[in-house]
Design a protein around this nucleic acid. Sequence first.
DNA 1: CATATGTATATACAGTTGTATATTCATATG
DNA 2: CATATGAATATACAACTGTATATACATATG
Lengths: 212, 212
Amino acid sequence: MNNLDNNAAKRQVSSQEVMDAAVKLLESNRSVSTLSLREIARTAGIAPNTFYRHFRDVDELTVALIDQAGRSLREVIREARQRLSLEKSAIRSSVEAFMSQLDTEQKYLHVLLREMSTGPEAFRKAVDRELNYFEEELRDELLRLELTTGHKTYEPGLAAKAITRLVFAMGAAAADVPKDERGPMINQTVIMIRMIMEGAQSLAVKGEDHTG
Amino acid sequence: MNNLDNNAAKRQVSSQEVMDAAVKLLESNRSVSTLSLREIARTAGIAPNTFYRHFRDVDELTVALIDQAGRSLREVIREARQRLSLEKSAIRSSVEAFMSQLDTEQKYLHVLLREMSTGPEAFRKAVDRELNYFEEELRDELLRLELTTGHKTYEPGLAAKAITRLVFAMGAAAADVPKDERGPMINQTVIMIRMIMEGAQSLAVKGEDHTG
DNA sequence: CATATGTATATACAGTTGTATATTCATATG
DNA sequence: CATATGAATATACAACTGTATATACATATG
């Protein structure tokens, strides 16, 4: 049954193609909740009912998009981190890698950023899962950094969480801005991260009784 | 023409009542884009066309909601700040005041948090406006603190921005969680803010060449 | 009282939506 | 070739949408 790549009607359609159609519609700053099943099907070039072959409904498609966005984003950041160990401008290159995902042709990151606090619980759960992956990887990185530099970090888990949330918040802000105006926002984000890391180290020295 | 408070049909309806109807619908974690004009009208107890007496469309209603949410939130925070000057647990009480807005009967803050990165540009512009108000007030507070404590702050505008974005991000996360599980999130947020402030002060001491 | 004005409603219409059902087509297997 | 199977489509339907138009009502003013 392999010969289905070709020239005529009734082609097999992959779920990925349906997802791509949805992303295409989302590119003009719409949120998933404004997409209709029929509209997505139309864009994908399939009949409305064919949609059901791939997803139970639009919500299920959305969760798949969020997962995909998270996976590919994590991969990109991990690559950026591997190129240099976390110190000096590793922060910058990670932030740049993150932001550069806003410019890719398939704007999956936009979905992730936009559905963070929207829609059914399943969406937010899915996004939260991705954020947690990030936090964990970042916390490990911070712990590794402790050993390397000798500077202890106060509550590395929290520092990682703060950085993650901040980067995503700034990413969402950057997504609303034309590509060539993002430079300053990257710089700002880098400085903010530095503040957090510096502060976490400073608090570690001062002692832990600063929470009241 | 004052006698319209009363017992029978064809009552005058205020725009506020229409807004309240929308908020009521939004309380079950729906985003504005899922509301229809007819549904809002139905909830407000008016005929569909009466909606147009108050707003051009649902988008205009939404912007009004965002503005209102921002105004009332700023007021609450300002009150919290006035009760104590910004130091020690002024941070905590501000964060608590912020989070407590999640529990009010009319959940306007939810709208603000949920429409941050959704919908038409007008929404995001409206939310951005509110965030900027916050940042400005907070930056002024940080500058005042500089004079009081003698500790300089590195890039107070950026520190204010970082804190603001972080608080809103944590607020959005807290909004998705039952009321009695928010305590820990408040604590986390307070510590994160402390990291930023501490870091900004520490960077001010170390010098400014840490941005590359 | 007459009537103008602002406010709310009723009816109607065309467009879209999600999905149930029946059908067509393409392929793989007997 | 016959035919079973899976994939895509066509048709249909009721529900809902935004809004245009016409109408009813309440109040204020003459």
